[in-house]
Each structure stands twice: as structure tokens, then as C-alpha cells.
């Protein structure tokens, strides 16, 4: 379990308080979405999970390991993987397999074990055939998959994704989301930062961060039911929720606490039948 207890963080140079008393618990195997306006502290928060930054006040405990204790960092970073927004700046190797091997090499595994992990990670994201390819010759979506494989090769229990579908075409984004979903079914805890509310609605829990604080927390239906509060923060709703709200405003008797396409389809089918 990841336990974030009342953490504060300040970027001293910029004089910005990025996190002001955030508390959160994330269970193993949970799929959590972090949403909120730009600059609200989402990325700062997930960087605490990997001990990349340490809280000025408060504690972050990963499976009983305190991130403030530097001796725990190797274990913490093996347990929590990070997939950054721009794969270009996190791919270290020049070929796909070299990059995926970087993490296991740092874990000081023997060559045979590294090779096994590289093949396994590439297989899990479905790019085993790209193993020998130069990363420069890959598409944006493929680079993102390499970045995910690089994290998977460390066999983490939790993975934090920072806008994993940003700048991708719909097909590549769908592929990434499918992988995230599959990882979650394999009991990997997912912490997913997104600005796409349809993606956020895929999670089992949504946490809204605003001005460095947790402003709302709950299941997607609860959160996206609070339309006024979300709009106040300048955030959008999942497309299906927005459609149902518009129908309701026009006098159609539909539920508006729906975030999934399948449920929305059922609502509309019901509406058509009753008419």
C-alpha cells in the first residue's frame, strides 16, 4: 500500500507551494486517476511516490518503506515505476532492448535474468519484434511503449503514468490505455495522471487535485456528478456524461451519473424504447 500522509512541497527557486497537506492511500492493484488543472501539483505528487522528490513536511510510505530514508530508495524505485510524459527524455538506450535493460542493469541482475526480464517486458507491451530496433526509428506511440516496457522490466507493484496518451493519435492512445488496463488486471497498482476525462473515468477511483490540495475524491460517478465544482476548476466532463446532461437539460429522463460508454448506450436505448 502507498500511504501519503499530509505532505507539503515547495519549489524554492520559483517560490511556489506545489503541495499543501496532501493525504492519500493507494492500494496494490488499484486504478487511480489524478485529475486537475495544469500546475495543480499532480506531477509533483507522483514524483514523491518514486522518491524523486522528498516532502518538506509529512511522510510518503511505500509498502512500509519511508521515502525520506535514502537507504530505502533502491527498493522504493523497484516497487514504484514512473512513466513520464515525454518518452524522448526517458529513453536512455539507443536500441529498444538496451533501453529496457537499463533498469534491471541498475538492479545488478545477472545477464541471463536481465535478458529474461527484457523479453518479458517487451512481450507484455506487445513489441517484442522491435527489440533490436534503433529507438530513433520508432513512432511516438512505439517510444511510449518502450518507456512502459523499461519500467515493467523492473517488475514494479505500482506504476505512475504522467499523461501517457498526450500527443498520441487515437489508435496509439487506445493501445496504451489497453495496456494500462491489462496491467491493472495483473494486480499492478496504477496511478494515472490525465486531462482526458474519458480516461479518468476508466479508473476505480478519481482524485481531483487543485492548488496543491486534494479537493475531491471518489468513484468516477461521484466525481463527474459534481458538474458545477469541476467546471469551477475549468475541467471538463467525460463526453458521455456531458451528452446525458444535455439530454436531461432538454427534458429527457436520463441518468447523468454515468461515465462509461456501455452504460450511456443502455440509457439511450432505454430512452428510445420508452418513446
Amino acid at each position: 500500500m502507498i500511504s501519503i500522509n499530509n505532505i507539503y512541497y515547495r519549489y524554492e527557486q520559483e517560490g511556489i507551494d506545489a503541495l499543501c497537506g496532501v493525504s492519500l492511500e493507494i492500494q496494490e492493484g488499484e486504478h487511480l486517476s489524478l485529475i486537475g488543472p495544469n500546475g495543480c501539483g499532480k506531477t509533483t505528487l507522483i514524483q514523491h511516490l518514486n522518491a524523486l522528490i522528498l516532502p518538506r513536511q509529512g511522510k510518503v510510505i511505500i509498502d512500509g518503506l519511508n521515502t525520506s530514508d535514502t537507504e530505502n530508495h533502491i527498493q522504493i524505485r523497484s516497487r514504484v515505476g514512473m512513466v513520464f510524459q515525454n518518452p524522448e527524455n526517458q529513453i536512455i538506450g539507443m536500441t529498444v532492448e538496451e533501453d529496457v535493460a537499463f533498469g534491471p542493469e541498475n538492479l545488478q541482475l545477472p545477464t541471463a535474468a536481465i535478458k529474461e526480464r527484457v523479453a518479458e517486458a517487451l512481450e507484455r507491451v506487445g513489441i517484442l519484434e522491435l527489440a533490436k530496433r534503433n529507438v530513433e526509428h520508432l513512432s511516438g506511440g512505439e517510444k511510449r511503449l518502450v518507456a512502459i516496457a523499461g519500467v515493467l522490466a523492473m517488475r514494479p507493484r505500482y506504476i505512475a503514468f504522467d499523461e501517457p496518451t498526450a500527443f498520441l493519435d487515437p489508435a496509439a492512445a487506445k493501445r496504451i490505455l489497453k495496456i494500462i488496463d491489462k496491467l491493472n488486471t495483473e494486480n499492478v497498482g496504477i496511478i494515472h495522471i490525465t486531462h482526458n476525462m474519458d480516461e479518468a473515468a476508466m479508473a476505480s477511483r478519481v482524485v481531483v487535485i487543485n492548488e496543491g490540495r486534494v479537493s475531491m475524491e471518489g468513484d468516477p460517478q461521484d466525481i463527474f456528478g459534481k458538474v458545477d465544482l469541476l467546471q469551477e476548476m475549468g475541467m471538463q466532463l467525460p463526453q458521455v456524461t456531458e451528452l446525458l446532461i444535455r439530454l436531461k437539460l432538454d427534458g429527457f429522463p436520463v441518468r447523468t451519473d454515468i461515465v462509461a460508454m456501455e452504460d450511456a448506450t443502455e440509457q439511450i436505448k432505454l430512452l428510445v424504447k420508452t418513446r
Binding site: Q47, R77, N86, Q90, M154
Partner: peptide, 10 residues
């Protein structure tokens, strides 16, 4: 960014 990514991968 690369230094942070390297640190994140131990």
C-alpha cells in the same frame, strides 16, 4: 529530465 528518468529507474 534524463537525469530524473535515470534516477527513477534506480
Amino acid at each position: 529530465e534524463l537525469a530524473v528518468a535515470m534516477e527513477a529507474r534506480n
